[in-house]
Design a protein around this nucleic acid. Structure first.
Lengths: 135, 135
DNA sequence: CTGTATCCTTAGGGATACTG
DNA sequence: CAGTATCCCTAAGGATACAG
């Protein structure tokens, strides 16, 4: 999804990302998909930050609308959906890695999980594997 | 500023950045400082997104509290302050560049200003100049 | 258990008045 | 003009009940 004229404040690229991710929850869902290997509704609910059910549903919907994730029926478990990153969603990886690096540098309490730093390492080599294989 | 135990949802690096920038306005102030060469209160008010005065004041305060910007008396114009990025603030550049690139790729209406793409170019060379000189 | 809907409180934020 | 404060409405979101 691209800029829609209504409720679009400007054509600035920084503003653009805020239209989708400018809140306290959305990026955490991306993190869970990208680094934690989560794909089910219930798995997102289990994360440390304790997102509430209605917020999660709204964010999954939003991300799907914006073309960042897909929602598909799980062939195995009926009445259950698998959420996955699209190419557009996977393309957020460099941003996520830079964020991780910045936070690690400036917050002594930040505990960077190994999945993050491994993804960071392979990306810096310019070799797109590791985390990305799984995406 | 680092994680303060109260109202900190987790020690995840992605969550950490959201504690400061997880809203629709804060990052725009950083953009204005980093790419637009703005430093005065009134200049931030002029941006396309039309931030309101109380929100701007609150965000400048927040960014200062979090060690991302400094607020110093303007020696020339009395009763006027100069806002500037700290090292921690300047270190957001790689994130800003990745965001710019992602938005440019996925939003056809995004109009990437020349300051952004120039900063992007010099950064990719690994040569920290251009925009960074001015910071 | 997966997901949706509802209730209700709080926080975000627009408009604007106000002070130095 | 720079910045703060207030008024007030709307959106964000926590708790929880509900439906398949």
């Amino acid at each position: 999804m691209e800029h829609n004229s209504e409720n679009c404040r400007s054509n600035c690229p920084i503003n653009f990302i805020l239209e989708t991710f400018g809140d306290k929850w959305t990026l955490l869902v991306v993190r869970d998909l990208m680094f934690k290997g989560k794909k089910y509704y219930g798995e997102f609910l289990e994360s440390d930050e304790k997102i509430s059910t209605n917020i999660l549903a709204e964010r999954l919907q939003r991300l799907e609308t914006h073309g960042v994730i897909t929602k598909e029926k799980d062939p195995d478990h009926k009445s259950k959906f698998i959420y996955a990153l699209t190419e557009k969603g996977k393309a957020l990886l460099p941003i996520m890695l830079e964020v991780t690096q910045w936070s690690s540098t400036y917050d002594s309490l930040t505990n960077t999980p190994k999945e993050f730093s491994e993804a960071l390492k392979v990306d810096k080599d310019g070799v797109k594997k590791g985390v990305l294989d799984r995406l």
